[in-house]
């Protein structure tokens, strides 16, 4: 896998070691007053940006941390170090 991801704990590592956790959509919404549509949007709908996207990664074969990072989806390159320090 050509992708490299920068883990806030372990540094820049091969993409093989990570699991993708999807686009960053913010915290879970409050349950009060949620419509099925709103809920479905939160769970299933994605922006699918062609460009820079904030997203979640899990260092599965490493330290086991979830963190967010920015990636350019058109080049499949991480554009800066991960956010969580």
């Amino acid at each position: 896998m050509a992708l490299t991801i920068t883990c806030p704990v372990c540094g820049k590592r091969d993409g093989y070691e990570f699991r993708y956790g999807g686009e960053d959509k913010g915290p879970r919404p409050d349950e009060e007053g949620l419509t099925p549509e709103n809920w479905c949007d939160y769970v299933h709908m994605n922006d699918c940006v062609a460009g820079i996207q904030k997203e979640w990664w899990y260092h599965r074969d490493g330290c086991g941390v979830w963190f967010s990072t920015h990636r350019d989806t058109t080049t499949n390159l991480e554009i800066s170090d991960s956010e969580v320090k």
Binding site: R19, G21, G26, P27, R28, W56, Y58, R60, G64, V65, W66
Partner: peptide, 11 residues
Amino acid sequence: VEWIRYHTRFD
């Protein structure tokens, strides 16, 4: 581990 940490990642 991944599952539980994922669903508590914002908290």
